[in-house]
Computed example of a mutant assay.
Amino acid sequence: METLIVYESLWGNTRQVAEEVARGAREGSDALTLCAVADAPSSLTPSLTLLVIGAPTHAFSLPTPSSRAEARSEGAASSHTPGIREWLAGLTVKTPPPTVAAFDTRQGRSFLVGSAAKSIARAAKRRALIVSETADFVVTSREGPLEQGELERAFAWGRALTAPR
């Protein structure tokens, strides 16, 4: 199984989750690549089996150029441009398409917060990708840290994504 994990992280929380998902997924992957969206390939190879995509939730959805600029003005360490939203819109998908799993980081567990993972899933489906599942990981505030137990949950989710079925 060849796995690619692409993430967008402004405060570092989504990066931490992506790293733990990768650590868990390594056990079931023959080849695994973890990269920030700025370093992600613009085309998916036919050998890719699993694509995991993660981003923070901004204003109920994926970050936009204006929400990234706002985060930067408030001290965010990173400002991926383009972000996951733009990367997915320009992505070239080759046949057969990989299975996609999406995750986000967000404040709180309420559905009122919105979900970047669900936005990723909708955007992936528009690109004719098959979405297998989504996951939300909770941060205590915009800057973080992640709630206790979330990194362990990310590791377990990554392991489950690549476990033999």
Rank of each mutant, 00 (worst) to 15 (best):
T3Q: 09
L4G: 08
I5F: 04
V6A: 05
Y7Q: 06
S9C: 04
S9E: 07
S9K: 01
N13E: 14
N13R: 03
T14S: 10
T14G: 06
Q16R: 13
V17C: 05
V17K: 05
E19S: 08
E19D: 10
E20P: 01
V21I: 15
A22D: 07
A22P: 06
G24Y: 04
G24C: 04
G24H: 05
A25K: 08
E27T: 10
S29T: 11
A36Q: 09
V37N: 09
A38L: 12
D39W: 01
P41A: 07
S43E: 15
S43R: 14
L44M: 07
T45G: 13
T45V: 10
P46T: 10
S47G: 14
S47Q: 15
L48N: 05
L51V: 03
V52C: 01
G54C: 02
P56R: 00
T57Y: 05
T57M: 03
S61N: 13
S61C: 11
L62H: 05
P63W: 02
P63G: 08
T64S: 15
T64L: 09
T64V: 04
P65S: 08
P65K: 07
S66L: 11
S66K: 12
S67T: 15
S73P: 02
A76L: 00
A77P: 02
S79I: 00
H80M: 00
T81L: 09
T81G: 10
G83S: 11
I84K: 00
W87E: 00
L88P: 01
A89Q: 14
G90N: 15
G90F: 06
L91G: 08
L91A: 07
L91F: 05
T95I: 12
P98W: 02
P98N: 05
V100G: 07
A101N: 03
A101F: 10
A101K: 02
A102E: 05
F103D: 07
F103G: 03
D104Y: 07
D104Q: 06
Q107E: 15
R109L: 13
R109C: 14
S110Y: 11
S110I: 13
L112T: 15
S115G: 13
S115A: 10
A116Q: 09
A117I: 04
A117Y: 08
A117Q: 08
S119Q: 11
S119H: 14
I120C: 01
I120D: 04
K125E: 15
K125V: 14
R126M: 11
R127F: 00
A128Y: 05
L129K: 00
I130M: 02
V131F: 00
S132W: 01
A135E: 14
D136V: 01
F137A: 09
V139C: 13
T140D: 14
T140K: 14
T140R: 14
T140G: 10
R142S: 11
E143F: 00
E143Q: 15
L146W: 07
Q148Y: 10
E150Y: 07
L151G: 11
R153A: 15
R153L: 12
A154H: 07
W157Q: 06
G158Y: 09
G158K: 05
G158D: 11
G158M: 06
A160V: 05
L161N: 04
L161W: 01
L161A: 04
T162M: 01
T162H: 01
T162A: 03
T162C: 01
A163Q: 13
A163H: 10
